[in-house]
Simulated assay, not measured.
Amino acid sequence: MKNTKISASALWCLALAISFSLVQCTKAEKDDDFTPGDPPPVEGGFVNSSEIEPASLVAYFPFEDNVDDKQATVTGGAIKGSGTFTEGRKGKAYQGANGAFISYANPGAVGALTSFTVSFWINTQKHDGGAQGVFALSKEDGSFWGNFFVIIEGNNSSSDKMLTKLHFEKNVTPPINNVEQWLDLPEALRPDNMYGAWRQITYTYDETTSKVAYYANGQRITIDENNAGAIVNRTDRKANDTTPLGALAFKNPAKFVIGGYQNQLGAPYGGAEPWMLTYTGKLDEMRIYKKALTPQQVSALFKLESQGR
């Protein structure tokens, strides 16, 4: 009887030793190397990118071997030219090419934005000779500039700072003094190290504050003194008019383009000018929301998408 008790005690001690050894050998998980099951949430409590403002997401293009908007509001999409698909930041991505772009017959809810967040991943090299179009919301009347677009300017310098330009408009009756709004940063404020690898770009505009903000890889770019977002008003056209821009209003939105300008669509836009280039890099995970995401949400979106979530 005494020998039985000693054996049981020895077995218990052996099991405890093995358990302690396993705990000691377990390595901490890295941010991008999760074990099966739900990974830990990022700041804000988000586990997947789909959890960020789902009710405000009006268009989502993951480019999983197709050009479909998963929110099904932007429809009638087709690749024009030799654009194709390739390995992306998350799954597959759109691979642009010279003269290639994606045309959508119906811009859906993108045409009704009054505030916005637009976020996308790019992987591109420097180019010269003009500006490449990332996306554009066209106008039915054939006006020179579209309602809403982002372009990447050429760079033939040794700097890896990227100049992207954001354009959006407010077309109302009676017309306001400054219909066109541009965010065009001086070189000192442009994000660095933006070429040759996957980089996320995000823009937001909030109609309640009339402020626009710019993010690179989830980090807010300082574009004003207190980094609270630049106030968009009409002072650049009329010195005594300081009325905030407020809710946007697009004029007769007709089509949506990814990887080019509205001018690539042909009539009634008069054709693309020589400096209007199509996007030739990789493009992935484009999301458009009808509200301005908070800095925390933008940061969370970057972290989640960079981890493939």
Score class of each variant (00 low, 15 high):
3 N>Q: 11
3 N>W: 14
7 S>A: 15
7 S>T: 13
8 A>M: 15
10 A>H: 06
10 A>R: 14
12 W>L: 14
19 S>C: 12
19 S>I: 15
19 S>P: 06
20 F>P: 00
23 V>N: 09
25 C>H: 13
27 K>L: 13
30 K>S: 09
39 P>N: 01
41 P>I: 00
50 S>Q: 11
72 A>N: 14
90 K>V: 02
91 G>W: 02
105 A>D: 14
106 N>A: 11
111 G>C: 05
115 S>L: 05
118 V>F: 02
119 S>R: 04
134 V>A: 01
139 K>G: 03
148 F>I: 10
149 F>G: 03
150 V>P: 05
161 K>Y: 01
163 L>W: 04
167 H>T: 12
168 F>P: 03
169 E>Q: 15
170 K>R: 15
178 N>L: 10
180 E>W: 07
183 L>W: 04
184 D>T: 10
186 P>Q: 11
195 Y>M: 03
206 D>M: 03
207 E>Y: 04
207 E>T: 06
208 T>Q: 08
208 T>I: 07
214 Y>D: 00
217 N>M: 04
219 Q>R: 11
221 I>F: 10
229 G>L: 13
233 N>M: 04
234 R>N: 07
237 R>Y: 09
239 A>G: 10
248 L>P: 00
252 N>K: 10
255 K>W: 03
266 G>H: 02
283 L>T: 07
286 M>N: 10
299 S>E: 14
307 Q>V: 00
